[in-house]
Amino acid sequence: MTNIDINLNLYLTAFEKMADAVLLLNAKDERFINCNEAALKLFAYPNKTAFLNQKPADISPTHQTDGKSSSQKTTESYALAKQTGFHRFDWQYLKHDGSTFSAEVTLTPIIVEEEEIFHITLRELSEHILRELTERIQIPESIIKNIMAYLESEKTNVASMSIDQKIQELNQHTGPTELKGLNILIVEDDAFMQEVITELLERFGATFIVANNGAEALEALEKDQFDAVLMDLHMPLMDGFVATLQIRKIEKFANLPIIAVTASVSEEAKQRCLRTGMNDFISKPINVSKLLSKITSWTKVSE
């Protein structure tokens, strides 16, 4: 297939603005002759001078994950790209500090000013997988990121799982009716956190009311019946500690589960939550699985 012929000035203008990491490789000596800022960031290099003039072997481990040598696979990739016009594959790379990462690579032969060059687009494989997971199971990207981070902390083999295995794991932690039938009072003054929590609760089947401070929470409790309260600690007018003390003074709310949502994870803060009358606590940023676990655990206890 004929290589793509490109005007140098137009190409370089677009090249620098690309969001994906892009490398330019001289096809003759197989050395990198240019890269954009996204590539420097991905490989954690301080500047182009430190990165350029290297060969692919210099930024790759000796062998790829399938056991084949990086050198052999590089030669095969060049040949396939020239034969078909482009070649897309997964690759293990080395960052400047020696750590490794996986990327989805698109290798395209082009002609720039009569010189044969390989245009190499990189996207971290985790981003590629995230995009596919989002499309296939129709769950917001923010939720998938949160759950995957939790799974990776709990299971050492998550990174090596296939897409289908990852989907199976996600489905076990994202049952859409896991909180169905529960009505949750969210006491939170931060608009962003309100959006995060309501998105999660809605996804898992719960209904909810949002109160911007402790005073509004007390009013909401008198008007509606709730299965649990997610209580921020620091709010204007009435904070979470005072609100909890006031709630516990009302006999019918003596057993209402109150879960603190806090950025402070110190032992002192946790003990203060418990002394005030809260049942449990969860730290920000919110871990989806832990939040679900705490809500289901306390609502079952209170039944």
Rank of each mutant, 00 (worst) to 15 (best):
F208S: 02
A260M: 01
D224H: 13
I144P: 02
R248V: 13
S77K: 01
G240K: 11
M193R: 10
G181N: 05
E135V: 14
V187M: 10
P285V: 12
N36H: 05
S60K: 05
G67Q: 04
S293E: 15
S153E: 13
K41C: 04
V242W: 11
S153T: 13
L218I: 09
T13E: 15
P56V: 14
K155Q: 08
Q54C: 10
K300V: 06
E188K: 04
Q225H: 13
D190R: 01
T75L: 14
T121Y: 06
I163Q: 01
I33R: 04
L107N: 03
K270I: 12
F89K: 01
I258S: 15
H128R: 14
G277P: 04
I197R: 05
E132V: 09
L125Y: 12
T276F: 07
K82A: 08
L170Y: 02
I111M: 14
V242P: 07
T156S: 09
I184G: 05
D189C: 07
A79T: 09
E152V: 11
I184P: 01
L107Y: 06
L170N: 02
L42P: 00
T134E: 10
Q246N: 14
I184Y: 04
G205L: 05
S142H: 05
A211I: 13
I247L: 05
F89R: 03
C273Y: 03
T121E: 14
G67F: 11
E222H: 10
